[in-house]
Design a binder for these strands. Structure first.
Lengths: 353, 353
DNA sequence: CTGAAAGCGCTTACAG
DNA sequence: CTGAAAGCGCTTACAG
């Protein structure tokens, strides 16, 4: 008594339609379709052909009502930026797609990722779909979201995270990028060039406990320099707009540093362009060390000395952790924590004092 | 006989557990939870409280087995770039999230979006989830994927597309950006400045029937100039790397144009930086008109004359079309086709011959 | 190798 | 206002 209309038309909506069309039971049809159970090759072929002919496709939800294991791996990231974060997502997604997984992205459209409640809802929606695994970017995440992840894991889900070294450790495999080390390397490089008056510019809203300030400060301290609070800059704007806003700030201040660490190549590039337009020279009047070492760094007006942010390395580790845990099945080794660091590439934007 | 263990623990896995805990029937529990049907406020509150206390959450798949209408709108885009495409996705997602929808992104990680079969699978997976609506980026899409969309629409799904003006019209609402007009405006601007020897550089692999070449050519033709095939450049690289590669090409050729249209601000910026390093001056030796008018354009070493790519306008139209159709319900007006064009913003990279 | 039956967890007419 | 029953479309032991 099911789907009479559909069965008479050219479309099969359910396995009942296929059962009728082939004269088999729905059990047999189901087995033939899924490949589970012993089915004669001839029968199987008959079913598959009917499925093709009648344009049958299984109901997504009914198929997942019982089984947990699907081929879906959820990617959770609060925001898509125009740089390293999106690169990481892309790289992870590419690798996972190549392995045959379906990899939808759960995110907001807005930078920052919204209120805590919204974050929880987003993760909860993902978790309730019981994907095979969840890859979670820790950037900007509220602690409560980790509770959701925990619940998912207790339910048998596999989790891999990536984020930044200063973030609280989780019980999950986690690949972290050492941001503090990047600013440390940058400051260190400038100190070795003889600079003592060094500033730091981080585009975007100021965050408390900023690890990039810490790494920067540590490098100064090691050389007996003290951090000048007025030389720690931030702007609400990001990227090029941020760099330009920073240039305005910089041109206004009376006592200027002789060197500046700028987090992000686009910001650094725009900053340099704007201050050069105002008559300053890089590196003659000011040395600049940038961050990320994206292709933009080498092709900036003044090729940028930059500390890299190897997004592909992060992505590779994440996928590696995930696949290892997926393959190991029941055995669950301790959570791994992999630290990724950048490397300084010296170019023309920094020079001896 | 259901979930005995779970019921005895502190977690309610199913409405059966809630029914037992409250002493009500599962029908009543279901109605109280969903808000459908007549339930006394007291009973409803009792159920909701039990649900909270027992950490109950509905089974995602069982809930969707019967009903079509969910709060999910699928975003389909073959690739996340580091520019306008991702900006469009972000803007659309933000607007839709604000309206309370769940907006997962279906994409590949690789630029270009993979083989036709993979594209179809991706769309098919999305379609089978019966989202309330699908927003589809037409960029790089195989024609077969439109067949999938059609099937989705025939099933009652709502579709909104966005893409480019030269792409074949679909039967769906579609917001298209006029790429040809952008290069037309760029060339036109250069012609008005007196240039006659004008080249065009489009980063990325060369595509046949490139509308940007057409718009460019049309502008030349209108002024009685002929297009020089050797001055239509492309490189496999994109963005900054593309611009740098183009600079190498440009520096090698014997007879150079006096002006160049470069599609993408990052490519234009890197190009200019590299040729200036080689001793050429912009705009003295070469005028450049760029595309997109992103924040990078204004803050480039030579502020770029650029024709905009208003991603936010595209996104706003897409969401508007979608919501209109969603609200109209059964009535289905004819498919709309909205054309979005850029505007030229003159800066210092272009000058009279 | 094939099929009758129970079940996945929820929703939805339909009685009471 | 509440509940017994049928059903959503599939899968999975379990018989034959």
């Amino acid at each position: 008594m099911k789907s009479d209309v559909a069965a008479s038309s050219t479309t099969a909506r359910t396995i009942y339609d296929l059962a009728r069309a082939t004269g088999l039971s729905k059990t047999t049809v189901s087995s033939a379709l899924s490949g589970n159970g012993r089915i004669s090759p001839a029968t199987r072929e008959r079913v598959l052909e009917a499925a093709r002919a009648l344009n049958y496709e299984g109901n997504y939800y009914a198929q997942r009502l019982k089984r947990r294991c699907t081929k879906t791996i959820g990617l959770f990231s609060l925001d898509l930026d125009l740089g390293a974060e999106t690169q990481k997502i892309k790289a992870i997604q590419r690798k996972l797609t190549e392995r045959g997984y379906d990899v939808p992205i759960s995110s907001y459209g807005s930078y920052g990722g919204g209120e805590t409640v919204e974050q929880i809802t987003l993760m909860s929606t993902l978790r309730r779909q019981r994907p095979l695994a969840i890859v979670c970017s820790l950037r900007g995440i509220a602690p409560e979201v980790l509770g959701e992840l925990r619940r998912y894991a207790e339910d048998g889900g596999v989790v891999a995270c990536y984020g930044f070294l200063d973030q609280e450790a989780t019980e999950f495999d986690c690949v972290v990028f050492d941001e503090a080390d990047n600013t440390y390397q940058a400051a260190r490089h400038l100190l070795e060039l003889g600079h003592r008056d060094i500033g730091l510019y981080i585009p975007g809203a100021r965050r408390p406990q900023e690890p990039r300030v810490k790494g920067f400060e540590q490098a100064l301290r090691e050389r007996g320099c003290t951090l000048q609070p007025e030389w720690i800059f931030s702007t609400p704007e990001l990227y090029d707009s941020g760099g330009a806003a920073m240039a305005k700030l910089f041109l206004k201040i009376k006592r200027r540093p002789t060197a500046l660490c700028i987090v992000n190549d686009y910001a650094a590039s725009a900053f340099i362009n704007e201050i050069q337009r105002a008559g300053l020279r890089v590196p003659d009047d000011l040395s600049v060390v940038s961050h990320d070492d994206s292709p933009a760094a080498a092709h900036s007006a003044v090729p940028l000395t930059s500390v890299s942010h190897p997004f592909d390395v992060v992505a590779a580790h994440v996928v590696e952790c995930l696949c290892e845990r997926l393959n190991n099945g029941a055995q669950s080794p301790d959570a791994r924590r992999i630290v990724v660091r950048g490397e300084l590439k010296a170019r023309q934007s920094s020079a001896p004092l």
